[in-house]
């Protein structure tokens, strides 16, 4: 639908966005790559020369590396399972006829709007504090010993905080998907004698599969990068040091930029693997 004239105009109008993003991507990336091959300690001598793949080897062989990968996987995996399962259930519930549907939806969505630093602080102090936290009161009420959540069950606590933040997102998207399900399909299945459980398994769930994939992939991108929740609660202690946080510590706390940059390259590679999957799915949708 285009003429030569509009095509060249289009290229011109696309230029600012493309150039900006290209710069935003390439300049820091090249710098990170550059630092990753150097021994670079800003506070202890600065640039101490090229070291080849030393930083890469040191980063993976450090005792903190594998635990941090496991912690990352545990948090991402845990949050994904919780948000998808409860998201599907909640979406189905919210799709039923009821009074005050709009208000309930607002209540359910609310956590999404809470900034990560706030939700981490509120959960840490007012709910998970072993002395004055609400959970401690609840445990005592039932005669149980209050749990020191952020040290005894640190990973689970973080998973819970993050799940609370992301459940609204999953629910919202799954609800949108459920609402787009043609009710005649369900009625046809009912006429064919399918029980409610069978209707869910054979019609609703397959219909949701695409939305679930979208939820999983978008959340994975954000979850791989969670920072504030850990920064505010455990500062990476008690086994909650994720890959992101480990790199952060190497760069800012130990001021070892070379080592941190090598870690950064690993994180970028990891994120790109996830990105390829997401791009495939989103790309397919572009064709449709």
């Amino acid at each position: 639908m285009a003429t030569q004239h509009s095509r060249s105009a289009a290229r011109l109008m696309m230029a600012p966005a493309v150039v900006l993003l290209l710069g935003w991507m390439l300049v820091p990336l090249i710098m990170t790559l550059y630092f990753s091959f150097k021994k670079y300690l800003p506070l202890r001598g600065g640039d101490l020369g090229w070291v080849g793949f030393d930083n890469y080897v040191r980063f993976v062989t450090s005792s903190a590396f594998w635990p941090s990968v496991l912690a990352t996987l545990a948090i991402v995996g845990g949050v994904l399972v919780i948000t998808v399962v409860f998201g599907v259930l909640l979406a189905i519930l919210l799709n039923q006829p009821m009074w005050g549907q709009g208000i309930v939806r607002i209540l359910v969505i609310a956590p999404f709007f809470v900034m990560p630093t706030v939700s981490a602080l509120v959960w840490k102090n007012m709910f998970m504090d072993p002395v004055n936290g609400l959970f401690a009161h609840l445990w005592k009420f039932f005669g149980a010993q209050p749990v020191e959540w952020l040290s005894q069950a640190s990973l689970q606590s973080i998973v819970m905080i993050v799940s609370w933040q992301w459940l609204p997102f999953a629910t919202l998207i799954l609800l949108t998907a459920i609402q787009s399900l043609d009710s005649e399909q369900l009625e046809a299945a009912e006429m064919d004698g399918a029980s409610p459980l069978k209707r869910f398994a054979y019609i609703t769930l397959p219909h949701l599969s695409r939305a679930i994939t979208v939820v999983v992939l978008i959340q994975t991108i954000f979850l791989l990068a969670i920072f504030a929740e850990i920064f505010v609660t455990t500062q990476g202690s008690f086994g909650t040091r994720t890959l992101t946080y480990l790199i952060y510590q190497r760069v800012l706390e130990s001021q070892n930029v070379g080592l941190g940059s090598a870690g950064g390259v690993y994180a970028i590679i990891l994120a790109n693997i996830v990105a390829i999957f997401l791009m495939r799915i989103v790309g397919k949708n572009l064709d449709a």
Binding site: L21, W24, M25, V27, P28, L29, M31, T32, F35, I221, L224, A225, F227, T244, I247, Y248, V251, L252, V257, G260, S261, G263, G264, V265, A267, I268, L270, A271, N272, V274, A275, L278
Partner: peptide, 12 residues
């Protein structure tokens, strides 16, 4: 580009 982990490019 949205998926580049911020921490990877923090120092640059």
């Amino acid at each position: 580009t949205k998926m580049l982990p911020a921490v990877g490019v923090l120092y640059p």
